[in-house]
Design a protein around this nucleic acid. Structure first.
Lengths: 181, 181
DNA sequence: CTGTATCCCAGCGGATACTG
DNA sequence: CAGTATCCGCTGGGATACAG
């Protein structure tokens, strides 16, 4: 589903991943989904734009200014997010104005929500200045949002209760080999 | 709690934040906790090192090689993570060897767990190649881990049920002013 | 208003060589 | 084994000017 190039021949998602696959060292790159994610939203400008989109911004101008980045950077990053399928353009029209184009998160982009909330919560703990400007809340009850790590069976999982499991034979061998050569 | 400089006069956490605070534009930077977080773990090398630390790595050599980064970069980044209070050095001794120093996540570092899990899960959706090498699981039941957005009242919150609330008067005014100048 | 085109600089990350 | 020192290319991001 990821490599559908569309009718216009757009490059596949996560295109820069190629650089990893060509690497001859065994490194976790290419295996690791954290790195895949960082290829797309690993830059400051990408994340603050995504943040503004979650805050409800749609117009180019608003996004750039609220994100606190220059318009040049905003344009570059938005185009990239467009290519990566994180945002899509959507026409809108203000009363008495001509139709314009705005930006909106796609499903793939909306799936970044837990990451944004997690980053927000963690960033919260870095400083005791609590004048944070705005926060995510549950619409119906008004309580602020947080993230919780759970397993597929529904148990809340503390870090101490979590483990790492190898799912690939070859990977496990190479990974362990790196431990004691 | 964050600005305790310790007996050795270490620089305060999130030192680079100063650059934001000096900015005269109103931008969300300085307010936004996402950006605070990115100041610390916003680089690829920082995140992959943190990932390896969650995977259980402790020794410099292992961390660098498994993370797939050069030792020079690993050293730079680890020093920074040390300064930022994400990792700490811990002595260890292999049988028959002299005592050496390794790295371990601090409490602040361990608090990054939801972010790592969230990034992992999202990165998962970017490619349908499911040979991911390893995964986080719940130790007791073996089910893989995921993250869930919840509000402080315990409700599971979908993006559609979430809202944004201003918590600062001045911020709200400036933020809205950016909407229609 | 929504960008594009340049130019510039700082920082990330790689490679290599060297130390305790 | 656990780094440090140096050099160097790439790109992220700012500034400025321009365009549809």
């Amino acid at each position: 589903m990821v490599d559908d190039e569309g009718a216009n021949g757009a490059r596949p998602i996560v295109r820069r991943l190629g650089a990893f696959e060509e690497r001859d060292d065994w490194s976790a790159a290419g295996w690791c989904r954290v790195e895949r994610a960082l290829e797309v939203v690993g830059t400051r400008s990408a994340m603050v734009l995504v943040r503004e989109l979650f805050y409800g911004g749609t117009r180019f101008d608003d996004l750039a200014r609220r994100a606190g980045i220059s318009e040049a950077v905003a344009a570059r990053r938005l185009r990239q997010l467009l290519d990566d399928g994180i945002v899509e353009r959507v026409p809108y029209r203000e009363p008495g104005q001509r139709t314009r184009e705005g930006y909106r998160l796609t499903d793939r982009g909306r799936a970044l929500f837990p990451i944004v909330v997690a980053l927000t919560r963690w960033g919260d703990t870095l400083k005791d200045d609590h004048r944070t400007g705005l926060e995510f809340v549950h619409d119906s009850c008004g309580a602020p949002l947080d993230v919780e790590v759970r397993c597929a069976d529904g148990h809340v999982v503390d870090l101490a209760e979590s483990a790492v499991r190898f799912t690939d034979e070859e990977f496990a061998l190479r990974y362990k080999a790196a431990h004691r050569p």
